[in-house]
Design a protein around this nucleic acid. Structure first.
Lengths: 151, 151
DNA sequence: ACAGGTTCCGAATACTCTTCGGGGTATGGC
DNA sequence: GCCATACCCCGAAGAGTATTCGGAACCTGT
């Protein structure tokens, strides 16, 4: 499915998506033209879904992160879809997971401080009729591994 | 802290980290040389923490994702630090959060299937002495917002 | 008004991207 | 074995981009 060269390309681009194609080609030991075609093939296949700058929320004035577990009632399409749109439109939202279990959603947010979080919870979430239950957990530290390797 | 041009640069690079500097300059309406210097300043300041390719776990043979909430006992430095290293070394791990609340860690994993998840839980986690409690939640869908804006 | 500092720009050179034709090499049919 | 097919890789070269640097414009406080 993915040979050694593709895997190496993936690894390098996950580590630094902004290296030049020539540099990438050198690191994975193929010609630049070959490398370029490989990268495009990976994109076409959907293995490489995109390239994103990673901004530090703390440096942008949001040093506090939290998970908000939400129960949405009734849990049907007409309620869930607007809720998802609402959450994704919040500037505080970093990620949203739809999960199986006692809670229905896990929202990862970055905020200025505790007061900001409180305001977000009270004005943003509990004021919505479909939100049946909230549980908030502060995040001390969040480490994201960028190197998702092939199996 | 961050003027309109920096914010625009951030937005564009979060959306596509691999656009050329010239294209970026065009989009944010400055000269290419200015744009280059701005990007470097944002990196120097730590606002732009890195550039990463986003690989699709499903396309790499790990279509199933889950959160594993872990309680670690005793919750002291000598136990916690090796545990963090262990989790980050697992190929299944995508992200790890150290949190405040009933649970101590939330581990985001991507696996092949339910059997793989079961094996990971039994052989990887519950077999470790410091793991006092586990709670696993399947993830139906996970949406990450890339545009963390300034305040 | 002016000195000091900062930010921006455009020109020019060095470097990189991208295309394309051609040459290897593996595979399968006969 | 031998050919046809498909695939992948490579290097050359024109088009395009990155990067540096000197100087102009613009604040800001005195």
């Amino acid at each position: 499915m993915l040979d050694a060269i593709d895997a190496a390309i993936l690894r390098e681009l996950q580590n630094d998506a902004r290296i030049s194609n020539k540099e990438l080609a050198t690191r994975v030991n193929v010609a630049a033209s070959t490398c370029l075609e490989r990268v495009r093939a990976l994109q076409r296949r959907g293995v490489l879904a995109g390239f994103h700058a990673d901004a530090d929320p703390a440096a942008l004035g949001r040093p506090l992160q939290a998970y908000i577990a939400v129960r949405v009632r009734p849990h049907n399409r007409d309620v869930v879809e607007p809720f998802i749109r609402f959450v994704l439109d919040l500037p505080e939202t970093i990620a949203l997971s739809h999960i199986a279990g006692a809670d229905d959603f896990l929202v990862h947010v970055a905020v200025r401080d505790a007061a900001h979080l409180q305001r977000l919870l009270l004005d943003g979430f509990t004021s919505r009729r479909e939100v049946a239950h909230l549980e908030t957990q502060l995040i001390f530290s969040h480490i994201r591994k960028w190197d998702v390797g092939p199996m």
